[in-house]
């Protein structure tokens, strides 16, 4: 008996440590990645790069022989336009689907829906890009009589389809967290299903729903492969949804392999990485604060 107890104490503390290391490692990795990206770009960021020009110039000529110019405004506009369009599609669809799954469908349909939505989330981004490159491309050319179908519209729709599962599953969680007594109270006062949703459920779940949307945004901003394939790879500020653009992420993916290590170009790509990191970090932070807001209520 004594032995066994000894063994239990040892395994117990060993497991405890193992779990602790797992937890700490997550933090280490995040800081590690940030440190690495920062280190690769730091030299040029603090010496040589005109930060103002970097952020405000649309001219991106990193390999020009006569005059190299590193302006990411057009790339940011590309990311912003694709993200905005995708959210304009994904938010209403995603929240609508979340409301439907949580409030309108029966338990069996609910299970099916959730499985299908998870399946949608599991499709690799390169497959989405493939759909953008072939199917959507032709569709847009035919429908809009456009010279090319690899556009903001194409990327936006693909990204919307990729963000919807996140918005649905987190949005549904938020709605599920609203106590049933609120629904009962509203219905017993004679409100219709929609009045109940609109007047009680949505206000009660608004923080969770906002968090769902912001996580969808973070997904859209950070997505690389699908937008690289679907948006046409043209560095310019888009004038309409039928223009080709290039996003920050796609630029890194496309150019990093060809930029000589430690060159200015190479470092600028890492600075774009820092910029992206900052954007997604800000969005996630806002989402976090918003979710925390729910708990304090």
């Amino acid at each position: 008996m004594g032995n066994r107890k000894q063994l239990e104490i040892i395994t117990e503390s060993a497991i405890e440590w193992l779990i602790r290391i797992c937890g700490i490692s997550a933090i280490l990795f995040v800081f590690g990645i940030f440190f690495f990206v920062f280190r690769e770009g730091a030299e040029f960021l603090f010496g040589g790069l005109d930060l103002w020009q970097f952020l405000t110039s649309p001219e991106w000529y990193p390999t020009s022989v006569s005059q190299k110019r590193y302006g990411v405004l057009a790339l940011m506009a590309g990311t912003a336009s694709v993200t905005l369009l995708s959210m304009a599609i994904a938010v209403p669809f995603g929240l609508g689907a979340a409301i439907y799954v949580s409030e309108f469908c029966g338990p069996k349909a609910k299970e099916t829906f959730k499985i299908v939505i998870e399946l949608l989330a599991a499709i690799p981004s390169v497959v989405w890009g493939f759909i953008g490159l072939t199917l959507m491309n032709e569709l847009i050319i035919t429908l809009f009589d456009a010279p090319i179908g690899l556009t903001v519209l194409n990327g936006g729709i693909i990204l919307a389809l990729m963000s919807v599962p996140i918005i649905v599953s987190i949005g549904e969680d938020a709605l599920k967290a609203v106590p049933d007594s609120y629904r009962e109270a509203a219905e017993a006062l004679g409100s219709t299903r929609w009045q109940m949703i609109y007047r009680v459920l949505l206000p009660a779940a608004k923080n969770g729903l906002l968090a769902a949307v912001l996580l969808g945004v973070a997904r859209a901003v950070g997505e690389t492969m699908a937008v690289l394939m679907a948006t046409g790879h043209a560095v310019k500020i888009p004038g309409s949804v039928l223009d080709s653009v290039r996003t920050l992420t796609a630029t890194i993916a496309a150019e990093l392999g060809e930029a000589p290590v430690a060159s200015d170009h190479y470092q600028v790509l890492f600075i774009i990485g820092i910029l992206l990191f900052t954007i997604t970090f800000a969005v996630n932070l806002i989402a976090d604060l918003v979710v925390k807001g729910i708990k304090e209520q």
Binding site: S181, A185, A186, A188, S191, R199, V200, A204
Partner: peptide
Amino acid sequence: GMVFQRPNPLPISVYENVVFGLRVH
């Protein structure tokens, strides 16, 4: 009207709780 076992005011202001029925109907 119905009053429940656990008080279940809606998560809105006192004022809006009282006028909820009016708004709905």
